[in-house]
Simulated scan of single mutants.
Amino acid sequence: MITDTVGQGGRNALNDTMIVQRLLNQIDIPGAQQLVADGSPGVRTIFKIQAFQRSIGIARPDGIIAPRSKTMTELMCRANAENSVHAQLSLTNPAPTSADLGAPWIATAEREIGQKEVAGPKANPRIMEYHKAAKYWAKDDSLGVNAWCGSFVAWVMSQHGHAAPANAFRAKEWASFGTPLKAPVYGSIGIKSRSGGGHVAFAVGQSRDGKHYYMLGGNQSNEVNVSRYGADVWDAFVFPAGVAAGDTLPVYQGTASDAGSEA
């Protein structure tokens, strides 16, 4: 059960808003899109609340849900009828997941954290899989000529059915991928310049003051990790075409390293 109002003019506490978004997503409401369950009460959430209110006979939907109101009671009943297990999860586990935040590929990328280069002529077979996804002919995983940040992004996105751009092993080619963004959101792909080339990685958070972005990428100090970068070093951010992007880049709560080598 929510603790306070959610929607148009509501208090919109993060957990309450996520609970409502998840419950709404479990119900088939004609004309209403699936929501990114990120706890941000945007226009889509308010529209879907209003659509649900109309579906239960409220003549003048106000787009707000209060605890123990008719809207909340009906929402919980219908969501439980649709899928009782998922509804229960919505109420007991409001912590956002990468899927809730509109970027399920981040969970895939996170599982690769710790993959690193092998010094010398041998190579990490996993990194060679990244190169294969980017159609790169590299035979090694180390040294500048074998930079693999673009290959890592290509491999991650391929696991979710998104075709990489041509020459995806070249970081700057990712600027032509998908839809350009004015500002990063969770799961967006950032592209920057560096000495001798470029770098590409996934945005997973920002500092409280917005001066730093936390980027999950490959070939960051020769491994897959989350690194902290100045916000002003990034040239562009893109998001897969046809996928609804979230509205925010959350404050990063995990562990990270300061940005290091990308070659």
Rank of each mutant, 00 (worst) to 15 (best):
E117M: 07
K211H: 11
G150C: 01
L216V: 00
I19F: 12
N93D: 13
E74F: 01
P121A: 12
M128N: 02
M76C: 12
R228V: 10
G57I: 03
Q21F: 07
S55G: 05
A103Q: 00
P94H: 02
Y252M: 05
E117A: 04
T3V: 08
A231C: 04
T255I: 05
R228Y: 03
L14W: 11
P30Y: 07
T71D: 15
P125V: 09
D38K: 02
A95I: 03
G205D: 08
P67S: 04
D28C: 00
I27V: 15
W148E: 05
A138E: 08
G144C: 03
P30M: 08
T255V: 01
S40L: 05
L181N: 10
Q50I: 01
G31I: 00
W137E: 15
G150K: 01
I113C: 03
P41A: 13
L101N: 14
I65R: 04
I27A: 12
D16A: 07
P184D: 09
V200Y: 01
I127S: 10
G42C: 12
F237L: 01
E223D: 08
P184V: 04
Y252Q: 09
S55N: 06
A109D: 09
H199K: 00
G242E: 08
F169D: 14
T71Y: 09
S257I: 04
A13H: 10
M128F: 10
N93T: 13
R170A: 14
P94C: 09
Q34T: 12
S221G: 11
N80K: 11
Q33L: 13
G10V: 02
R194A: 08
E262F: 03
V118Q: 13
G10S: 07
S158A: 15
C149L: 01
A147P: 01
G217M: 04
I19D: 11
A168D: 10
V118N: 11
